[in-house]
Design a protein around this nucleic acid. Sequence first.
DNA 1: AAGGCTTCCAACCGCGTACTG
DNA 2: GCAGTACGCGGTTGGAAGCCT
Length: 395
Amino acid sequence: MVRAPCCEKVGLKKGKWTAEEDEILIKYIQVNGEGSWRSLPKNAGLLRCGKSCRLRWINYLRTDLRRGNISVEEDSLIVELHASFGNRWSLIASHLPGRTDNEIKNYWNSHLSRKIYTAVITTTATTTTTTTTTATTLPRIMDIPPKRRNGRTSRWAMKKNKIYALKTKPNNHQESPKQSYQSVVTHNKNHEAVPLAPTPSLETENLTMVMDFSEEIGDGSSKGSSQQEDENGGGTMVNEQYCIVDEDAIINNMLCINGEKENSGHENSEQYQEVINGGWGLNFNEIMDTCFMELGEEIENNNNNNNNNNEQTCTNRESGELLCTFSSKVTGLDDSNNNSKWDWGSVIELNGKDDVAESWEKKENLLTWLWEDDDWGKDYNEFGDIDLMLAWLSS
DNA sequence: AAGGCTTCCAACCGCGTACTG
DNA sequence: GCAGTACGCGGTTGGAAGCCT
C-alpha cells in the first residue's frame, strides 16, 4: 500500500527556496510559532509542502543557527560523537548548539569520512618496522588535513560575503559542545545504559544480516552440531547455538546468538564461539585474531617473555617480519588481574596493511555494535579493557 | 577557453514512530 | 486496539560551481 503524500503535492513548488519565500515563512513563524507544518503553507500563502517548510526553517532559517565553518573543536566533537552514536545525526547535532543534523551529516559525508580514511592510509604508509607503540604517539585523525582533490571549495566560503541568511544568535540554554561531550564520556565510563533509541542505520542493517546468518545455521546446521557436552562432561545441552565466525567480517566474529554458556571446546572452535550468559557474547581474542589473519598476519603468544607482560607479537605471515608487539606495559595500566592489555594504537597500524577501507569499515561496525549492545560491557570485561578498546576504535 | 571531473550541500524522499480521535 | 495523521530522522539526489587538464 502506497503511503499517502504528506500533503497535496499538485501545484506545489519544489527546489530552491527564494528569498521571498523565506521571508514569508520567517514572518509567519514569528507570528504563529513553529508547528502545524501541514497547515502552515496554506495559512502562510506558500506553495510548498509542509515538510519542505519545516526543513527549510530547521536547517536554514531558524534564528539560533550557528552558520559558518565547523570549528576544530566541533570537528573533533563530531568525530567522537559519531564514534559513539553512529549515523544518528540528530543526536550528534543535539550536542552541537546551532548546528543541524543535516549540516553535520553533510559535513561528515564530505569532510570527515574522507579525512578519517586518509588518516588511516597515512598511518599505515608511515609505518615501516613497527615496534611497540602507544596510542598517544599516533597521529590524531583530526590533525591530518585531507588531501583535497580537485573540486569546488566550500559553498559557505563562497557565501560568507553575502548577507543572505546570516543569522546568529547565541543560545544560552544549551550546553557547550565540550560540556555535552564530557557528559557522554562520563556516562559511558560508568558503563551505564546509554539512552539510545534503535538505530536504523547502515551499520545496524549490516548487523542484522549477520545475526540472521547466525540464526540460520547456528542451531544444528551443517556447520555445527546441535548437541554438545557441557564443561563437566555432563549431559547434552539443548538449544545450543553458536556464533558463526565469518572469515570476511570481523564483526561476525563477535556475534553469538542467544543461548546458554557452554563448553567452548567444540571440535571446530575457530568457527564457533562460546556463548556467554545467554546473551550476545564477545570473544575479544578471536576478534583480534580474525582481524589480523584477514590481513595476512598472525599473532603469536610469546610465552617466553621474562617480564610476564602477557606480551604478544604480530608477524607477517609470509615474510616473518615482526610487525608489532602488544604488552600490558604499554598501556601503563594495572594488570594485577593478569588480563591482557592491548596496545590499540598498534592495532590501528596493523589494520591498514592490505585493505584499509574495508578494515576501517569493520572497525566502525564493531564500534557501533559495541555501543548498541546492552550487555557488551560485562561480557567484554572478561577479555580486556573496555576503555582502551573504545579509545582505539573512536580515535 | 572549454569540457570533464569532482565536490558540496540544500532539498527531497521514504520510513518509523508518536500522537490523536 | 485500530486507523489516520503529523512529525522527525536518515539516506539519497540534483544541480551549482570550483578545479584540472
